[in-house]
Amino acid sequence: MKGMLAVIVLDLKRLWADRIRLISSLIQPLLYLFVLGSGLGASSVLGGRGYLHYIFPGVIGLSLLFSSVFAAMLIVFDRQIGFLKAVLVAPVSRTAIAFGKVLSGALQASIPALILLLLMPVLGLHISLLRLLALLGTMALAAITFSALGVATAARFRSTIVFPIISNAVLLPMFFLSGALFPLANAPHWLRLLAHLDPVAYAVDLMRGAMLGKTFFPPLLSLAVLVGFIIVLTWLATRVFASGEDT
């Protein structure tokens, strides 16, 4: 437990020391929200609300997804500069390091997402306290899922050049397939099929359900899928950390 806490404190301290990372992580979601949202929103209305309102949960998902995976990139960076060795030779179990990394990534990703939530009144999005709490819960679940995805992937990489290329090549399709920017219900069959394999789709759908009260997937299915992803990905991350260099 102490080891896990040490990982989390370390990563949060580093985020605070590198606040520019936090600020820059807001740029992409704000572009989607205000440029795409306002541009397309001017000529389309979805779900009985403005397009900007419709994509808001998707943009939160985008922020959580990219921020958590890029937080995991620190693992690759630490390995490259040698800092990871200092952590791995400390008397902390590899399971604690993996869990700590997953939770710290989720916490780091939650900060810009929470800042985006503060924009809701500006966008004219007013929800009840109950819905807000549900939204926060689903955001936490999504953040942990995406962070586990990032940690499980980053733990295998040794190059800070290759990892962002690969992760972008995977993250963007995951985001676009998720239904963050359009309703899956009206999407072609093949796209809906692919969305069923995409954890981002379940996370965004749950968040949208919490905010707007309408979901594409049954909420219980989404919860089960996300929890399943968390368990499998965290287990994979733990395995990579535990296997060390003698593999």
Binding site: A17, F83, V89
Partner: peptide, 13 residues
Amino acid sequence: GIVFQEPALEQKL
């Protein structure tokens, strides 16, 4: 305790 050949410190902290 161990001191590596390469630096193992968090440079921004």
